[in-house]
């Protein structure tokens, strides 16, 4: 099962549970405050996901750092490649 299928299954399961509870298909008598919480629940989940995404982006912006070791390694590899190519007769 791919990741997409997993997500779709989970969403379908959650969605049908929510729909059944909201429409009262199960014949449960929920207290009115529970029903008040239940009906905006999809919007709430969406807003939470949005907040998480915004927070992640903000956190990564605040803490990103330069990869100086990697930059040095790449520079040295470029030098090496240039030297090798010059030896084989390529002119830059």
């Amino acid at each position: 099962m791919t990741k997409l299928a997993q997500w779709l299954w989970a969403l379908a399961l959650l969605g049908s549970t929510w729909a059944a509870l909201t429409m009262g298909a199960l014949g449960l008598e929920l207290p009115s405050s529970c029903r008040e919480v239940l009906w905006p629940l999809p919007a709430y989940l969406l807003v939470s996901a949005g907040c998480y995404a915004l927070g992640t982006v903000g956190y990564r912006v605040a803490t990103f750092h330069d990869c100086e070791d990697a930059a040095r390694e790449l520079q040295s590899q470029i030098q090496e490649a240039r030297a090798d190519l010059t030896r084989r007769g390529l002119r830059f």
Partner: peptide
Amino acid sequence: VGLGLVALS
């Protein structure tokens, strides 16, 4: 900016 975004969220 980053911490502002975190705080906002």
